[in-house]
């Protein structure tokens, strides 16, 4: 369980993180969304115990993470820009990790060779960006981490490799109750991954929700009526957004599915569809309500 409590961080004049509070439960995947410069990386580096927060507390299983070796042994942080020691091979890096991380599994490292078809004696610096990212995942998974912090992790991986990595992630979360924090500026990338999502904007957490909750509570409705739209139709439901396309009314409605269906049926529409929303659409409407324009937040 990762607990982030009223955390703030300044870089000189710039207030990078402003009073952020949230928690990640054990064995779940948390998605941290936000545009470039929103503070995702800073927040993650604080969770990984690299940066020290100016205010607030960050604990993992109740212990502060900063300079806490016992906890750091269980955490792997994969930054968006990867670092390897100069002129090392995968084998040498693996040996290094073996001495650093006590839970390192040589067996897993060997087994994963099948998933990552790269020669272990090749120098990492000579590899392509995508291959380097594969090596990073390979090494990270082999340390059997309890907490995995991934900053824009899927950039540069091809679709097949993406799926492989996602599968291992799911497997570790399911089997070993691994906790994952994953950041992205791309909703689609994490839509099928995350249990819970937080959105950072200018250092503040503006939305923080259970993904299932988010999806079940909001619906897209298409209705058409004979003649005018009945006056009382829009009055007893929570309409977030509406738009008239010819005689068809399109609206985003918040609420329980059955209640909404019952309400609409009462007005006897000639056309009625209840559609699920994509994550992006949900965000557009949720944030529109809070006064943010989505284009400025997600690229």
């Amino acid at each position: 369980m990762i607990q982030i409590n009223h955390v703030s961080k300044r870089f000189g004049e710039l207030e990078a993180i402003k009073d952020v509070t949230f928690s990640v439960t054990k064995g779940s995947i948390y998605g941290l969304l936000g545009s470039n410069g929103a503070g995702k990386t800073t927040l993650m580096k604080m969770i990984a115990g690299i940066y020290k927060q100016d205010k607030g507390t960050i604990t993992i299983d109740g212990e502060p993470i900063f300079e806490n070796i016992k906890q750091k042994e269980r955490i792997i942080f994969l930054p968006d820009a990867l670092y390897f020691f100069p002129h090392t091979t995968i084998r040498q890096m693996a040996d290094f990790y073996r001495h650093i991380y006590p839970k390192w599994s040589e067996e897993r490292f060997r087994n994963m060779q099948e998933l990552f078809p790269i020669d272990v004696n090749k120098k990492i610096h000579r590899m392509s960006k995508g291959m380097q990212r594969q090596v990073a995942f390979w090494l990270a998974f082999s340390t059997m981490p309890d907490v995995l912090i991934l900053d824009e992790p899927l950039d540069g991986l091809d679709a097949v490799m993406r799926q492989k990595v996602k599968n291992i992630l799911f497997q570790d979360v399911a089997e070993r109750e691994m906790t994952v924090v994953i950041s992205s500026h791309n909703l689609f990338e994490v839509e099928d991954l995350c249990d819970r999502i937080g959105m950072l904007h200018h250092g503040s957490l503006i939305i923080e929700k259970e993904l299932d909750n988010l999806k079940t509570n909001i619906h897209k409705v298409q209705v058409a009526f004979q003649g005018q739209i009945p006056f009382s139709f829009l009055q007893h439901i929570d309409v977030v957004y509406q738009e008239q396309r010819g005689s068809v009314l399109l609206c985003i409605v918040r609420g329980e599915e059955e209640q909404i269906i019952a309400h609409i049926q009462k007005h006897e529409p000639i056309l009625f569809d209840l559609l699920p929303l994509t994550l992006e659409e949900i965000f557009i409407y949720e944030m529109g309500e809070q006064g943010y324009a989505i284009e400025n937040i997600l690229v």
């Binding site: 690299i50 016992k70 750091k72 955490i75 930054p79 670092y83 650093i100 991380y101």
Partner: peptide
């Protein structure tokens, strides 16, 4: 920056 972040993410006290 890169190596500083990396080295200090390792479970070793400063």
């Amino acid at each position: 920056k890169l190596s500083a972040d990396y080295m200090h993410s390792l479970p070793i006290k400063r």
